[in-house]
Amino acid sequence: MNTWQDSIVELIRRTSAEIPDDVQRAILAALEREKKGTIAASAMKIIEHNIALAKQKSQPICQDTGSVLFYVDCPAGFDQIAFTEAARAAVKAATQKGYLRQNSVDSLTGKNDGTNLGPGAPTLHFHQHKDAGVTVRLMLKGGGCENVGAQYSLPDEGIKADRDLAGCRKAILDAVLQAQGKGCGPGVLGVCIGGDRATGYEFSKTQLLRRLDDRNPVQELDKLEQDILNTANELGIGPMGFGGKTTLLGVKITTANRVPASYFVSISYMCWAYRRQGARFDATGKILDWLY
């Protein structure tokens, strides 16, 4: 599995140091929108400079290299155990190279052994598909944006949200208000309406694998995505919560069936330092092409 290990180290390096093109375009557009001379504009300028510098130096865009989340699509018969071992070895090697910070703490003892390995670290999601190839997506999700994620159980009297799309809208916009700049905005929301508490959050995260410039094929959800994006950007929270025109860069929403008794709206917030990359691999683990 050495080829796999080397390829995954490269996937980690690229994810940590290089912002995907779709996100970079959205950030440049946001920089254009902010009024010149404001602290919001200077924040966006530093962000733009940071993106260029990280790529040039092959260093982490953000020092919080986050939870390491792999999403693997593979054919039946693919050796998931061997892949997991290669991924763990790659995470350890990438940490030694400084692509990842020593970022994983034993929740019982508080010890950080510096390897980024432990229960749930890294996390791997495997999914079988009919295709013969293997696709691996990687998300590095920092703690600042993870901490402003939120899950609402509707009805919610505090925000007057009923069990309908209007109630979902209130919940999502309340999450934006509460997050302010704390999740390193301008950010992107991944949302799941429905599911249980765990699948709701899981599906909300996988929405962040969508390209920023795609459109939701479900008409009602597409409408809600555009509405949330436009409304959030009218609130004046702005980059880093400094005030300004760009509060969000994108909104991605999906649904999962729920039991009649539950109605969750789960929101994951991704910071502007949107570390998400992926590649298609051949059977030996060689990278064929990049996804984003």
């Binding site: 962000i47 400079h49 940071n50 510098l53 990280a54 982490p60 920092g142 880093m240 910071c271 330092a273």
Partner: peptide
């Protein structure tokens, strides 16, 4: 004093 979150490279410089 608010620094720019996520700007790890610019600030490291």
């Amino acid at each position: 004093l608010h620094a720019i979150g996520g700007a790890a490279q610019v600030l490291a410089e």
